[in-house]
Design a protein around this nucleic acid. Structure first.
Lengths: 187, 187
DNA sequence: CTTACTGTACCGTCTGGACGGTAATGTCAA
DNA sequence: TTGACATTACCGTCCAGACGGTACAGTAAG
């Protein structure tokens, strides 16, 4: 019955993200995380030797999950393979539709030290570059990318002011763009 | 020679915003703010009876400055009066061009407690509604609004990954939309 | 014997904020 | 004009509590 290293790690990461969401990103304490995760503080520090490492892991975990999902969607997990832009748009839309912002841990990392977000910055830049390479209309790509960024930040920072019809309007615009960029005849 | 209440308030607010920018939003302490502002901690607490009030003031100050600038630009401070959408786009662009993110205090408030951002959410919703009332093409308004939101969040959270040509591409797209929404013949 | 913890005790540091003081600036009656 | 009192705007000190992190003894499973 004793510990499974991997499952403890995940429980702790999940607990940290949830807590950050409900107590506020700046008030994330190790004691609280340990309690929420159902491990002792000693156990927490056994898995993550410092708070900084926890934060780093939170961010890396978020990125790797997003990247895995993106690859799966792009490869055509349900339905045939789609363009990466379409996959990116759909995935972002799904993420924004979630009730629990899955990236609240990321915000906690920001509160602790903005540098923790550097991996995300790098990931985003690489993603944008790879999308650019596949796109025929860079201007429209930038428009779509910025819109998604806007949508995501609103959700993440609990600033979502859009009505349902406004959001669906934005989404249908994005998906139409993605389809156009994918299908040579649509232009 | 003794204190001017108003100037102390402003010095403190400015110091808090600057500090939040350079020490990280979560590490904003009253002592540090007091030192930076050139007042004692007691003096700080006299002007803002608690940290929460400071944060609130930071956010309100940011909103009111933005709103004042928007009104001035819209009324045609330099050049004739422009549409509010055009003014909004230009103002946001200027804000994003700044080296010092003028809203870093807002991020500090977020770190303390996400609820401090509610006034901003309300302001944004009202702004969007008023722009909508003036717009002939709500879909394009939403696109523009989301793009600006994306641009702003990137700047604010130090996630600005766009190259110069990409940013200017986005800006020229936005300004073209603003002009089109203003000038009935351009459609 | 090792891995993966639990649990407790503890330390040094930092933080918000309460508090008592005080100099300068009004206010106002005599 | 002056003295008495009130208010404003701040200073400097102090403190209880929270926090990150360490140390270490114990334990249950494989």
């Amino acid at each position: 019955m004793s510990g499974n290293r991997a499952s403890s790690r995940e429980k702790i990461l999940a607990a940290a993200a949830e807590l950050a969401d409900c107590v506020g990103p700046g008030n994330l304490s190790l004691d609280a995380v340990a309690q929420r995760a159902g491990v002792s503080k000693g156990g927490l520090l056994y898995n993550f030797p410092s708070k900084a490492k926890l934060m780093q892991a939170l961010v890396e975990d978020y990125i790797s999950k997003f990247d895995t999902d993106l690859a799966a969607k792009s490869a055509g997990q349900h339905g045939g393979p789609v363009s990466r832009l379409a996959a990116y748009i759909e995935l972002s839309a799904e993420e924004c539709a979630q009730v629990h912002p899955s990236a609240s841990g990321v915000v906690a990392a920001l509160a602790e030290d903005p540098d923790f977000l550097k991996p995300i910055r790098n990931y985003k830049r690489r993603l944008l570059d790879s999308l650019k390479a596949e796109s025929k209309d860079p201007a429209k790509l930038i428009v779509a990318f910025l819109m998604i960024e806007g949508l995501r930040s609103m959700k993440l920072f609990d600033m979502d002011i859009l009505h349902e019809d406004e959001r669906s309007m934005a989404l249908s615009y994005l998906l139409a763009e993605a389809a156009a960029s994918q299908d040579p005849e649509a232009n």
